[in-house]
Nucleic acid binder design. Structure first.
Lengths: 249, 249
DNA sequence: AGCGCCGGTTCATTATTGACACCACTGTTG
DNA sequence: CAACAGTGGTGTCAATAATGAACCGGCGCT
């Protein structure tokens, strides 16, 4: 199904930072022929998944995704369940919490909340979280099936902060460490000054469905603090998995 | 791009009422070969837009749509803008209000709210609203471009209540009436006992982007009441269009 | 005028696809 | 028990659909 792959390659070029793209640029980004790209865009727009701006002639994602997203959420109310668990966990640990799920070439946040205090970690939802640069990513990779892990490790890795691991051997070692201790912990990996702990949660698949992460300023993240956070993280995982399996069927 | 059409034909079989479907049934619903259906499902699942239940082997929509829906909403915050206009309009008219947009074979609700009073019209969001059975649908059709209208009129029309129009001539007459008076008004069309008035709103396209509708029990819908509602509906349209064009760029 | 880029289109070439038979398995029926 | 009607899933190959280099006409810049 090469055509379907190409259609999604085109759709994958859109992001919260690049919401509207012209034909030539889109073809370049997706590494496709311009004619093929246009054919795909026309086909997608016929179904409401792509719109073309009347004034700039650029293309953007269409309304159709809202509808399918609502149906998906009616099927598995993951965003909803995740948000309620996040709300609980933020109260308990008084730090920023987010839940992210694998989404193609990166992970994407489906729920988050900041604590009511001054010095906190902020994050932009709908931003892509790189597997090799986030605790969430390591939590996922460490428990993913072989095939999934291979696919993820084949992706390009760039450094986003001083502590980002990019060499495959380093990433593998970090995955091993994560697997051994049962949780992922990163420092200055996604962004300087940010520390995170994360654990994966499961739903109906051999791969983790995603991960819950607590993010805090590096200065506050001692071994003691980490040990305090872990039981809450575990409890949050249990609550989320319960909500997901209990709520459906 | 027949392949893309087929992929979306498969995706279109999922709805809030039918969230999980098996391979054979899906092939039957989409009127595709089982082998082709499976190839499509495998391709879609590779990108996270379809998942397969581990226990029932049935297929369901995947997480991917949440991500794209978030990006879409970051591009054009229509759901958000619609909700705030709905909130305002409900306060003013004290009746159920919803905003719906065309979504393939029907319209789908992106924002709604019930008033704080006893006898009101309820509605299930993510439910499909048929073009020929709702004020929203007539508001859209009456101002749609020729091509769009032809496509919509080619769809199957079934009656859902005593007053539903199904014959093409009747529907055309209703469209003419709607166009002439500048708003759509229905009685017992979607469901017995429900009356609605609706007007279309635009964003960046020749076709209306959707419609805002006020729904109330038939008994309350007199000509006087309708005349009262219209100015508020017009104001709501203006607010929504302003939010959409003002908010972007 | 000349250049470089844009969105969009054409059509001979080539790769994907559709249809169908088929497998293994499960649950039901007489 | 055997026959049957479902299910999910696979392999084959002629028929069909996607492909992409070259090409438009237009716009903005020098």
């Amino acid at each position: 199904m090469k055509t379907v792959d190409k259609a999604f390659t085109v759709l994958d070029q859109f992001s919260a930072e690049r919401t509207e793209v012209g034909l030539s640029e889109l073809a370049r980004l997706a590494d496709l022929d311009k004619a093929a790209t246009r054919r795909l865009l026309v086909a997608l727009s016929k179904h409401g998944f792509i719109e073309q701006s009347a004034e700039t002639r650029k293309y953007r994602l269409g309304q159709g995704f809202l509808r399918l997203a609502r149906i998906r959420e009616a099927t598995v109310p993951m965003a909803q369940a995740a948000q309620s668990v996040v709300d609980w966990l933020v109260e308990e640990v008084d730090e920023t919490v987010h839940v992210s799920v694998p989404a193609g070439a990166a992970m994407s946040t489906i729920a988050f909340r900041l604590p009511r205090r001054g010095n906190v970690i902020n994050l932009v939802p709908a931003d892509a979280l790189l597997y090799h640069a986030t605790a969430t990513g390591y939590a996922f990779m460490a428990h993913a099936t072989q095939g999934t892990l291979t696919r993820v490790l084949a992706l390009k890795r760039e450094a986003t902060a001083a502590g980002t691991l990019t060499a495959k051997a380093d990433v593998m070692a970090k995955i091993e460490e994560t697997r051994a201790q049962g949780y992922a912990r990163t420092r200055n990996s996604f962004e300087d000054g940010v520390s995170s702990v994360a654990m994966p949660f499961y739903f109906d698949q051999p791969d983790p469905a995603g991960a819950i992460s607590i993010a805090l300023p590096e200065a506050r993240m001692t071994d003691e603090r980490c040990a305090e956070l872990l039981p809450f993280l575990r409890e949050a995982i249990a609550r989320l998995e319960k909500a997901l399996t209990g709520g459906v069927h």
